[in-house]
Computed example of a mutant assay.
Amino acid sequence: MPSGDIPQLLQQLQASSVDNSSLHGVMLTVEKLCSEYAYTPTEQLLTEGRAWLVRLVQLIQQPMTLAQRREVQVQAGWLALLVACVQYDIGDARTAEVTRRHALSLGGEAGHATIQGWAYEISAWQALTSGNYRGVLTAAQAGAAVAGRHGVSVQLAAQEAKALARMGDSKAALEALDRGRRLLEPMEYPTNIGNHFVVDPAKYDFYAMDVYRHLSSDDAAAEQLAREVLAAGVDWDGSERSVMRNAEARITLGTVTARRGDIDGAIEWGIKAISTDRKSLPSLLMVARDLTGAINKAAPDSPQVIEFTEQLHDLGGHR
């Protein structure tokens, strides 16, 4: 190759037909979609997420600078994470796992530790809801190794705590919970707490609530955290900002109520929790087992208990 051709080749490498303002628009759209996860109907979010992934695939085929290419990979990585979450919410675990792996690959190609960390966090969540608690620990540790002190490490610690609580190791669960809290405390408060891939103190209370509910060693703490989750997740006009978190908070209140012997009150909380339109079925069914365990222990032959258990079975059948 003649040496005179090298500058021309380098110039072509740096040439771009992509408008930076258009790329900025993509970033804003991805942020918007990730912020709508908590309340947007699953099919709508899935359709929009897929459509934007197609647009990014088309975009990356155009000439662009290396910096722009990396940014497209990053935005595609966030979208893939979001789509994987929604796919898993509706019970499509196999497709969700494929999408999650693509997100992990995109994060690796872009050198983006946070995206890689969240890909492992989704793996931990999948393992948790399927009862593979050792798998949760493996995924959480792998994610923490790549994510370092990024915000996702806080949520990885929380997933680890939830698994350890279900394994019966209350001491280790509380230690993991405390480790996540200590990681969170020095971090700057996020500018957009609505983004699903952001961890803030209120979201961490949601994870702590799960741990205390499952340990059943401190129902007062579980109840207090559940009420704080509901207070943060309901707007001034009664509309719900965090539908799925609120459902799990109601399951927690129902579980505590059942342990106190109020079966009618417990079932009322449970019915309200499973009646929401926006659901993460694997997560909801997982936490509902704590409630059904508590009410079955208190009143196993009650007609209301049998009816509620059947509703849960029907819900699981629509996965």
Rank of each mutant, 00 (worst) to 15 (best):
N192I: 07
I193P: 01
L164V: 14
R241N: 10
E185G: 05
L253C: 08
R179N: 13
E188L: 10
L253S: 08
R259E: 11
N246P: 04
I263N: 01
Y204Q: 02
A258E: 00
H214K: 08
Y212G: 01
T252P: 10
H214Q: 15
K171E: 13
T252K: 10
D219A: 15
Y207R: 00
D235F: 09
H196R: 15
R166P: 05
P190L: 08
I267C: 06
A176N: 04
L184E: 06
A222N: 03
R166W: 07
R166S: 03
D218Y: 06
E248L: 15
G254S: 13
V243L: 04
L184Y: 14
N195H: 09
A165K: 02
D218Q: 09
R213N: 14
I263D: 00
V229Q: 03
G238Y: 08
G180F: 03
D264M: 12
Y212V: 06
S239P: 06
D237S: 11
P190M: 03
V211I: 07
L177K: 00
T257E: 09
A176Q: 01
A173I: 06
L174N: 07
V234Y: 00
R227H: 15
V243R: 04
A258M: 01
R250V: 01
E248H: 15
N192F: 13
A232E: 05
A266Y: 01
L225I: 05
R250L: 10
R245N: 08
D235Q: 04
R259D: 11
A247R: 01
E185F: 05
N192G: 03
A226L: 02
D264H: 12
F206M: 09
K203I: 06
E223F: 05
L164H: 02
N195Q: 11
